[in-house]
Amino acid sequence: MTLQVTVPAGPPARGTLSLRKSVDKLSDAELANLRQAFAGAMALDDDRGFSYFAGWHGEPFNWCEHHTSLFLPWHRQYLYYFELALQAIVPGVTLPWWDWTVSDSIPAAYGVDSRAPDNPLLVSQVRIYRSGQSEPAPPRTPGQNPGVPPLPYQDDWNQAMAATSFAEFQTAIEQVHDNVHVWVGGIMQDIQSAAYDPLFFAHHAMIDRSWRLWQTQNPGATPAATLLDNGLRPNGMTVRQTLDVTQLGYEYAGTAAEAPGPTAPNGTAAATPADASTQTSAPGPGDRPHTPSEGSF
């Protein structure tokens, strides 16, 4: 399979981490790159394409894990492989997150945009991989499904983040996750079709970010030991290999920080975690990948 990537065992990988950002903090250029990557993936009808990856989660492959002990690990590796597929089209592009703890609506980037009349982030069809089945997608119906509480879900998220074991956290955050799917409506409200909506990946980046944040608050709290060597469908990445996002090559802006090392000129002030989500950088002459010895993490 051309997209299979194995996370190497042994010494930690060394390289520049990709930063996933809040969708509300993407620059115009970053949003354009994201749309270009999705459009490119949607134009591919093989195992590099959007329909193929949407089919991992729902129809036709149904490999996703819900209300099982593998919910968080499975979706982490799912986003990892899909993000690689996007990066093969637009190098450096990353999946943004939609923070529904503060937002009460679908991000503008995923809606009707007069500047992008063919916005690929606005779902238009469900095209089942290699089946010949293709149907127009019903529109999202945000907040219209009866009974579902309105966004934002700050209180529920806070309650999940207060969990003291992985199992308790996973159960609680999945329930918040379910509410968001049903709140969005359209094809997002059903497992079989949800990943055909590009908004799915912004929602799940938020879920994955939540796990990452919870991990920083609860170091060493992992899934049950008996699960750690379970292979996740379809590529066999193990649960253990999903535990450290930095070993998967990414981090969430806002949880990353950088400080100058002893060889930096004039003791440049360190960026704080809060600053990190808005920081910018540009490669200089002879720019090298960051390594721990250079003060990054």
Partner: peptide
Amino acid sequence: GSFSVFAHGRCWG
């Protein structure tokens, strides 16, 4: 309290 069931939806098979 409340909960959502994020369910299968229509069967395509």
